[in-house]
Computed example of a mutant assay.
Amino acid sequence: MTLQTFLADNIRYLRMQKTQLSQEKIAEAIGITRDRYSKYENGKVSLPLEVLVALSKFYHLSTDLLLTVDLRKYRLEEMVNLPDNRILLPIKTDEMGENKIEIVPFKASMGYLMSYADPDYIESLQTMSLPFLRNGKYRAFPVEGDSMPPHKDGAYIIGRYIESLNDIKIGKTYIFLTHEGITYKRLSAVQPTALEVMADNSFYKPYNILLKDLLEVWEFTSSIAVEESQQNELLLDNTTIIKMFNEIKSDLSKLTS
Results as ranks from 00 to 15, higher is better:
residue 37 Y to E: 03
residue 22 S to V: 13
residue 71 L to Q: 04
residue 37 Y to S: 03
residue 16 M to C: 05
residue 23 Q to L: 09
residue 32 I to K: 03
residue 29 A to N: 12
residue 23 Q to D: 10
residue 62 S to A: 13
residue 65 L to A: 02
residue 20 Q to W: 06
residue 70 D to Q: 03
residue 68 T to V: 01
residue 73 K to D: 09
residue 35 D to L: 08
residue 12 R to E: 08
residue 62 S to E: 05
residue 36 R to W: 15
residue 27 A to R: 14
residue 69 V to L: 02
residue 19 T to F: 08
residue 34 R to N: 08
residue 39 K to N: 08
residue 47 L to P: 04
residue 53 V to A: 14
residue 65 L to P: 00
residue 17 Q to M: 14
residue 73 K to I: 01
residue 73 K to H: 09
residue 53 V to F: 13
residue 47 L to N: 06
residue 20 Q to L: 07
residue 27 A to T: 10
residue 34 R to F: 10
residue 28 E to L: 13
residue 58 F to N: 00
residue 52 L to D: 05
residue 65 L to N: 00
residue 44 K to E: 06
residue 39 K to Q: 10
residue 52 L to Q: 06
residue 50 E to N: 10
residue 74 Y to K: 13
residue 53 V to W: 09
residue 52 L to Y: 08
residue 28 E to P: 15
residue 22 S to G: 11
residue 31 G to F: 02
residue 30 I to F: 13
residue 50 E to W: 15
residue 16 M to S: 11
residue 27 A to Q: 05
residue 14 L to W: 07
residue 12 R to G: 10
residue 57 K to E: 15
residue 12 R to A: 13
residue 45 V to M: 06
residue 14 L to S: 12
residue 72 R to M: 14
residue 35 D to K: 07
residue 54 A to I: 09
residue 59 Y to L: 09
residue 46 S to N: 11
residue 69 V to Q: 01
residue 26 I to Y: 01
residue 38 S to W: 14
residue 41 E to G: 14
residue 31 G to D: 06
residue 61 L to G: 00
residue 25 K to H: 12
residue 75 R to N: 10
residue 12 R to C: 15
residue 12 R to Y: 10
residue 66 L to G: 01
residue 48 P to A: 03
residue 60 H to N: 10
residue 53 V to Y: 14
residue 61 L to M: 04
